[in-house]
């Protein structure tokens, strides 16, 4: 297996697009090395992107935030403005694995690994995050939900590299939250999860909302009906019940070693309800 750690993006793209055999990008490695170890993949080439310029930075831009693809999730929590603007995205990213994993794993890697149970993805989808892609065809932006096409499958082409994840600026009175269910208190993969992002209008009525669910379908599901259930409300009980029901209706999960269809469906609704309440409280407390 050949290992390369290019220091320019052009070089990285050339390596990936010119590769013969199986080539993989290495960011944090917390999925890639596990898959190599389990003999699920046997790469001929691994391209480590962590030495690319700017890849390890979180930048404040005019549009919002740009999080480099090599930034470990642990660093997101240390970035105070990001934490203030997008607490739900940060908490989702920081739920991935242990402190040890946090020191390596990245949200770009979490996205590109394309697991239906990826923790950061529902929060990113709820947050209207975009992936910055550089590749042989140049540079483009794509909504994160357009990247994942199925379990382990993405829309990225040969030589494409997600170089950063972008989050928009926050309107006033906005909040987001992410909750997942795991059997233990740490270290597990989400059995099901929910990300909620919302903005309040006058009298703290929900003006706009996005609700996304994880681990209940082949890809993360955006549930517009669940969002509509709470828009125009102050999260009164019946609104929350409608939200939960809409979420349950949007679930098409599987039975596996981590949970049953019934469990995932029911608990996804519970989590969406609880996450909405947290997001709402965060928005309400903001100016």
């Amino acid at each position: 297996m050949r290992y390369e750690a290019p220091t320019s993006t052009r070089e990285a793209i050339a390596l990936m697009s010119g590769a013969k055999g199986d080539a993989y990008l290495l960011a944090g490695g917390t999925d890639l090395l596990v898959r190599m170890r389990g003999e699920f993949i046997d790469p001929d080439l691994v391209v480590d992107i962590k030495r690319l310029p700017g890849i390890q930075e979180i930048r404040k831009t005019a549009r919002g935030f740009s999080i480099g693809a090599g930034v470990p999730c642990a660093a997101l929590g240390r970035h105070k403005p990001l934490l203030r603007a997008w607490p739900g995205v940060v908490e989702a990213a920081q739920l991935i694995g242990s402190d040890q994993i946090q020191g390596r794993c990245t949200i770009a890697g979490n996205l590109c690994n394309a697991s239906p149970a990826a923790d950061s993805v529902p929060a990113l989808v709820a947050a209207t995050a975009k992936a910055v892609i550089v590749g042989p065809g140049g540079r483009r932006r794509l909504a994160v939900e357009k990247i994942i096409t199925g379990p382990g499958a993405t829309s990225l082409g040969k030589g494409d590299i997600v170089s950063a994840i972008e989050l928009p600026n926050r309107p006033p009175k906005s909040g987001d939250a992410y909750l997942r269910f795991i059997p233990r208190t740490e270290m597990d993969i989400a059995v099901c999860s929910a990300g909620v992002s919302l903005t309040l209008g006058p009298r703290n009525v929900v003006k706009q909302a996005r609700v996304a669910l994880g681990a209940v379908a082949p890809t993360v599901v955006l549930v517009p009906k669940a969002a509509r259930a709470i828009v125009g409300t102050r999260l009164e009980d019946d609104a929350l019940q409608r939200l939960a029901a809409a979420c349950e209706a949007a679930c098409s999960p599987i039975d596996d070693k981590r949970g049953t269809v019934e469990f995932r469906t029911e608990v996804a609704g519970v989590l969406a309800r609880r996450a909405a309440v947290i997001a709402y409280e965060r928005a309400r407390k903001k100016r």
Binding site: P183, R184, T185, E186, M187, D188, I189, D256, K257, R258
Partner: peptide, 23 residues
Amino acid sequence: VYGEDGRLQNPGFLDYRIPVCSD
């Protein structure tokens, strides 16, 4: 957890969940 195929589905500490410190 064994599958219908008789194979062990969770041969690792990720899905064979022994208590962690925070549990």
